[in-house]
Protein backbone atom coordinates (compact mmCIF):
# COMPACT_ATOMS: atom_id res chain seq x y z
CA UNK A 1 0.00 0.00 0.00
CA UNK A 2 2.77 2.43 0.94
CA UNK A 3 4.73 1.50 -2.17
CA UNK A 4 2.09 3.03 -4.48
CA UNK A 5 2.94 6.58 -3.50
CA UNK A 6 4.89 7.86 -6.49
CA UNK A 7 4.27 11.51 -5.76
CA UNK A 8 7.59 13.10 -4.97
CA UNK A 9 9.50 10.17 -6.41
CA UNK A 10 12.26 10.83 -8.89
CA UNK A 11 12.89 8.59 -11.88
CA UNK A 12 16.43 9.44 -13.05
CA UNK A 13 16.95 9.81 -16.79
CA UNK A 14 18.45 11.91 -19.55
CA UNK A 15 15.40 12.74 -21.65
CA UNK A 16 14.45 16.15 -23.06
CA UNK A 17 12.05 16.69 -20.18
CA UNK A 18 14.59 15.60 -17.57
CA UNK A 19 17.05 18.11 -18.94
CA UNK A 20 14.73 21.10 -18.80
CA UNK A 21 15.53 23.72 -16.17
CA UNK A 22 13.38 23.04 -13.08
CA UNK A 23 12.06 26.61 -13.24
CA UNK A 24 10.78 25.99 -16.77
CA UNK A 25 9.08 22.82 -15.63
CA UNK A 26 7.47 24.46 -12.62
CA UNK A 27 6.16 27.40 -14.65
CA UNK A 28 4.91 25.05 -17.37
CA UNK A 29 3.07 22.90 -14.83
CA UNK A 30 1.41 26.01 -13.37
CA UNK A 31 0.23 26.97 -16.86
CA UNK A 32 -0.83 23.38 -17.55
CA UNK A 33 -2.96 23.25 -14.40
CA UNK A 34 -4.58 26.60 -15.16
CA UNK A 35 -5.36 25.42 -18.67
CA UNK A 36 -6.95 22.21 -17.38
CA UNK A 37 -9.50 24.29 -15.51
CA UNK A 38 -10.22 26.41 -18.58
CA UNK A 39 -11.18 23.51 -20.84
CA UNK A 40 -14.88 23.53 -21.70
CA UNK A 41 -15.29 20.70 -24.20
CA UNK A 42 -14.42 17.09 -24.93
CA UNK A 43 -12.46 18.34 -27.90
CA UNK A 44 -10.30 20.29 -25.45
CA UNK A 45 -9.78 17.18 -23.31
CA UNK A 46 -8.75 15.27 -26.43
CA UNK A 47 -6.10 17.93 -27.09
CA UNK A 48 -5.02 17.73 -23.43
CA UNK A 49 -4.73 13.95 -23.64
CA UNK A 50 -2.58 14.15 -26.78
CA UNK A 51 -0.30 16.81 -25.27
CA UNK A 52 0.08 14.88 -22.01
CA UNK A 53 0.78 11.65 -23.88
CA UNK A 54 3.48 13.40 -25.92
CA UNK A 55 5.08 14.68 -22.71
CA UNK A 56 5.01 11.23 -21.11
CA UNK A 57 6.55 9.61 -24.18
CA UNK A 58 9.30 12.20 -24.49
CA UNK A 59 10.18 11.69 -20.81
CA UNK A 60 10.99 8.03 -21.62
CA UNK A 61 9.51 6.94 -18.29
CA UNK A 62 7.53 3.66 -18.54
CA UNK A 63 3.84 4.55 -18.96
CA UNK A 64 2.95 1.99 -16.31
CA UNK A 65 5.11 3.83 -13.82
CA UNK A 66 3.49 7.18 -14.56
CA UNK A 67 -0.01 5.71 -14.31
CA UNK A 68 0.79 4.16 -10.95
CA UNK A 69 0.57 7.66 -9.49
CA UNK A 70 -3.18 7.55 -10.16
CA UNK A 71 -3.83 4.55 -7.93
CA UNK A 72 -3.85 6.30 -4.54
CA UNK A 73 -6.36 8.92 -5.74
CA UNK A 74 -8.91 6.47 -7.20
CA UNK A 75 -11.11 6.54 -4.12
CA UNK A 76 -11.11 10.33 -4.02
CA UNK A 77 -11.90 10.53 -7.74
CA UNK A 78 -14.80 8.10 -7.38
CA UNK A 79 -16.36 10.08 -4.53
CA UNK A 80 -16.01 13.37 -6.40
CA UNK A 81 -17.57 11.83 -9.49
CA UNK A 82 -20.54 10.48 -7.52
CA UNK A 83 -21.18 13.85 -5.92
CA UNK A 84 -21.18 15.55 -9.28
CA UNK A 85 -23.32 12.85 -10.83
CA UNK A 86 -26.14 12.99 -8.29
CA UNK A 87 -26.05 16.55 -7.04
CA UNK A 88 -26.08 18.57 -10.27
CA UNK A 89 -29.33 20.21 -11.34
CA UNK A 90 -30.53 20.11 -14.94
CA UNK A 91 -32.39 17.94 -17.47
CA UNK A 92 -33.28 14.64 -15.88
CA UNK A 93 -31.74 11.62 -17.56
CA UNK A 94 -32.63 8.94 -15.02
CA UNK A 95 -34.59 8.83 -11.79
CA UNK A 96 -35.11 6.20 -9.08
CA UNK A 97 -36.65 7.17 -5.77
CA UNK A 98 -34.79 10.22 -4.51
CA UNK A 99 -31.80 9.55 -6.77
CA UNK A 100 -31.65 11.70 -9.86
CA UNK A 101 -29.02 11.83 -12.57
CA UNK A 102 -29.01 14.75 -14.98
CA UNK A 103 -27.31 15.13 -18.36
CA UNK A 104 -25.38 18.07 -16.93
CA UNK A 105 -24.35 15.87 -13.98
CA UNK A 106 -22.97 13.19 -16.30
CA UNK A 107 -20.88 15.71 -18.24
CA UNK A 108 -19.65 17.40 -15.08
CA UNK A 109 -18.70 14.07 -13.47
CA UNK A 110 -16.70 13.02 -16.53
CA UNK A 111 -14.98 16.43 -16.69
CA UNK A 112 -14.11 16.22 -12.99
CA UNK A 113 -12.59 12.76 -13.34
CA UNK A 114 -10.57 13.85 -16.37
CA UNK A 115 -9.37 17.01 -14.62
CA UNK A 116 -8.18 15.13 -11.55
CA UNK A 117 -6.46 12.48 -13.65
CA UNK A 118 -4.56 14.97 -15.74
CA UNK A 119 -3.74 17.09 -12.71
CA UNK A 120 -2.08 14.14 -11.01
CA UNK A 121 -0.45 12.93 -14.23
CA UNK A 122 1.08 16.35 -14.87
CA UNK A 123 2.40 16.84 -11.37
CA UNK A 124 3.77 13.31 -11.13
CA UNK A 125 5.53 13.87 -14.43
CA UNK A 126 7.14 16.94 -12.89
CA UNK A 127 8.39 15.12 -9.81
CA UNK A 128 9.37 12.01 -11.76
CA UNK A 129 11.61 13.97 -14.11
CA UNK A 130 13.06 16.48 -11.64
CA UNK A 131 15.37 15.55 -8.79
CA UNK A 132 14.02 16.85 -5.48
CA UNK A 133 17.03 19.12 -5.08
CA UNK A 134 16.50 20.67 -8.51
CA UNK A 135 12.82 21.05 -7.73
CA UNK A 136 13.39 22.88 -4.46
CA UNK A 137 16.17 24.96 -6.01
CA UNK A 138 13.75 25.96 -8.73
CA UNK A 139 11.03 26.89 -6.25
CA UNK A 140 13.50 28.86 -4.12
CA UNK A 141 14.69 30.72 -7.18
CA UNK A 142 11.21 31.51 -8.43
CA UNK A 143 10.11 32.70 -4.99
CA UNK A 144 13.21 34.76 -4.30
CA UNK A 145 11.75 38.03 -5.68
CA UNK A 146 9.15 37.64 -2.93
CA UNK A 147 11.84 37.61 -0.24
CA UNK A 148 11.58 41.40 -0.11
CA UNK A 149 8.00 41.19 1.11
CA UNK A 150 8.99 38.65 3.73
CA UNK A 151 8.40 35.29 2.02
CA UNK A 152 11.00 32.89 3.49
CA UNK A 153 11.93 31.37 0.12
CA UNK A 154 15.08 29.58 1.25
CA UNK A 155 13.49 28.18 4.40
CA UNK A 156 10.49 26.86 2.46
CA UNK A 157 12.77 25.17 -0.04
CA UNK A 158 14.90 23.67 2.73
CA UNK A 159 11.81 22.33 4.47
CA UNK A 160 10.68 20.68 1.26
CA UNK A 161 14.09 19.13 0.65
CA UNK A 162 14.15 17.65 4.12
CA UNK A 163 10.54 16.47 3.93
CA UNK A 164 11.30 14.68 0.66
CA UNK A 165 14.50 13.25 2.10
CA UNK A 166 12.59 11.77 5.06
CA UNK A 167 9.63 10.35 3.12
CA UNK A 168 11.33 7.00 2.44
CA UNK A 169 12.85 6.84 5.92
CA UNK A 170 9.52 7.42 7.63
CA UNK A 171 7.65 5.05 5.29
CA UNK A 172 10.16 2.35 6.16
CA UNK A 173 9.71 3.12 9.81
CA UNK A 174 5.89 3.00 9.52
CA UNK A 175 6.17 -0.40 7.89
CA UNK A 176 8.37 -1.59 10.77
CA UNK A 177 5.98 -0.26 13.41
CA UNK A 178 2.97 -1.86 11.70
CA UNK A 179 4.77 -5.19 11.63
CA UNK A 180 5.83 -4.85 15.26
CA UNK A 181 2.29 -4.01 16.37
CA UNK A 182 0.80 -6.79 14.26
CA UNK A 183 3.20 -9.22 15.89
CA UNK A 184 1.80 -8.05 19.23
CA UNK A 185 -1.70 -8.91 18.05
CA UNK A 186 -2.89 -5.52 16.78
CA UNK A 187 -5.61 -5.73 14.13
CA UNK A 188 -5.71 -3.07 11.43
CA UNK A 189 -7.91 -4.85 8.91
CA UNK A 190 -11.29 -5.50 10.53
CA UNK A 191 -13.95 -3.47 12.34
CA UNK A 192 -15.78 -0.31 11.39
CA UNK A 193 -14.24 3.01 10.48
CA UNK A 194 -13.93 4.22 14.07
CA UNK A 195 -12.26 1.09 15.40
CA UNK A 196 -9.90 1.14 12.42
CA UNK A 197 -9.00 4.75 13.12
CA UNK A 198 -8.38 3.83 16.74
CA UNK A 199 -6.07 1.05 15.61
CA UNK A 200 -3.89 3.70 13.95
CA UNK A 201 -3.01 5.33 17.28
CA UNK A 202 -0.38 2.74 18.24
CA UNK A 203 1.24 3.40 14.87
CA UNK A 204 1.11 7.17 14.93
CA UNK A 205 2.42 7.75 18.43
CA UNK A 206 5.73 5.90 18.03
CA UNK A 207 6.05 7.41 14.55
CA UNK A 208 5.68 10.94 15.88
CA UNK A 209 8.07 10.36 18.75
CA UNK A 210 10.70 9.03 16.40
CA UNK A 211 10.11 11.87 13.92
CA UNK A 212 10.72 14.46 16.63
CA UNK A 213 13.87 12.69 17.75
CA UNK A 214 15.09 12.59 14.15
CA UNK A 215 14.32 16.28 13.70
CA UNK A 216 16.35 17.06 16.81
CA UNK A 217 19.32 15.00 15.63
CA UNK A 218 19.15 16.47 12.15
CA UNK A 219 19.12 20.03 13.47
CA UNK A 220 22.33 19.38 15.42
CA UNK A 221 23.94 17.62 12.46
CA UNK A 222 23.08 20.57 10.22
CA UNK A 223 24.59 23.01 12.72
CA UNK A 224 27.71 20.88 12.79
CA UNK A 225 27.89 21.32 9.03
CA UNK A 226 27.86 25.10 9.42
CA UNK A 227 24.28 25.59 8.26
CA UNK A 228 23.18 29.17 8.84
CA UNK A 229 20.29 29.84 6.50
CA UNK A 230 20.34 30.90 2.89
CA UNK A 231 22.68 33.86 3.07
CA UNK A 232 25.97 33.57 1.20
CA UNK A 233 25.19 30.00 0.32
CA UNK A 234 26.77 28.65 -2.87
CA UNK A 235 25.49 25.64 -4.80
CA UNK A 236 27.02 22.51 -6.27
CA UNK A 237 24.64 22.75 -9.22
CA UNK A 238 23.72 26.19 -10.47
CA UNK A 239 20.47 26.59 -12.38
CA UNK A 240 20.98 27.39 -16.04
CA UNK A 241 18.47 27.94 -18.84
CA UNK A 242 19.31 26.66 -22.31
CA UNK A 243 17.75 26.57 -25.79
CA UNK A 244 15.75 23.54 -24.64
CA UNK A 245 13.82 25.70 -22.23
CA UNK A 246 12.84 27.90 -25.16
CA UNK A 247 11.30 24.84 -26.81
CA UNK A 248 9.57 23.95 -23.56
CA UNK A 249 7.94 27.35 -23.23
CA UNK A 250 7.08 27.31 -26.93
CA UNK A 251 5.30 23.98 -26.53
CA UNK A 252 3.23 25.09 -23.56
CA UNK A 253 2.21 28.33 -25.30
CA UNK A 254 1.17 26.41 -28.39
CA UNK A 255 -0.79 24.04 -26.17
CA UNK A 256 -2.58 26.92 -24.43
CA UNK A 257 -3.45 28.44 -27.80
CA UNK A 258 -4.90 25.16 -29.04
CA UNK A 259 -7.04 24.79 -25.93
CA UNK A 260 -8.40 28.33 -26.35
CA UNK A 261 -9.11 27.48 -29.96
CA UNK A 262 -11.04 24.34 -28.97
CA UNK A 263 -13.09 26.42 -26.54
CA UNK A 264 -14.01 28.92 -29.26
CA UNK A 265 -14.70 26.17 -31.78
CA UNK A 266 -16.94 24.13 -29.49
CA UNK A 267 -18.78 27.34 -28.53
CA UNK A 268 -19.47 28.11 -32.19
CA UNK A 269 -20.56 24.56 -32.98
CA UNK A 270 -22.59 24.28 -29.79
CA UNK A 271 -20.71 21.19 -28.61
CA UNK A 272 -20.05 20.38 -24.96
Amino acid sequence: MLKDITLGQYFPGKSFIHNLDPRTKILCIVIYITVIFLIKSFLGYAALAIFTALCVFSSKIPVKFVLRGLKPIMMFVAITALFNLFLTNGRVAWQWGFLTITYEGITLAIFMVLRLFFLVLGTSLLTLTTSPIALTDGIENLLSPLKRIGVPAHELAMMMTIALRFVPTLLEETDKIIKAQTARGADFESGNLISRAKAMIPILIPLFISAFRRADDLAVAMECRCYRGGENRTRLRALKMSYRDGFGFGAIILFTAIIILTNILSGRLGLV
Partner: peptide, 11 residues
Protein backbone atom coordinates in the same frame (compact mmCIF):
# COMPACT_ATOMS: atom_id res chain seq x y z
CA UNK B 1 19.75 8.36 8.77
CA UNK B 2 19.42 11.44 10.93
CA UNK B 3 22.48 13.23 9.55
CA UNK B 4 21.91 13.13 5.82
CA UNK B 5 20.13 16.16 4.41
CA UNK B 6 19.82 15.58 0.69
CA UNK B 7 18.23 12.88 -1.46
CA UNK B 8 21.33 12.34 -3.59
CA UNK B 9 24.71 11.34 -2.20
CA UNK B 10 26.81 14.03 -3.88
CA UNK B 11 24.31 16.74 -3.01
Amino acid sequence: DNQLVATIVEE
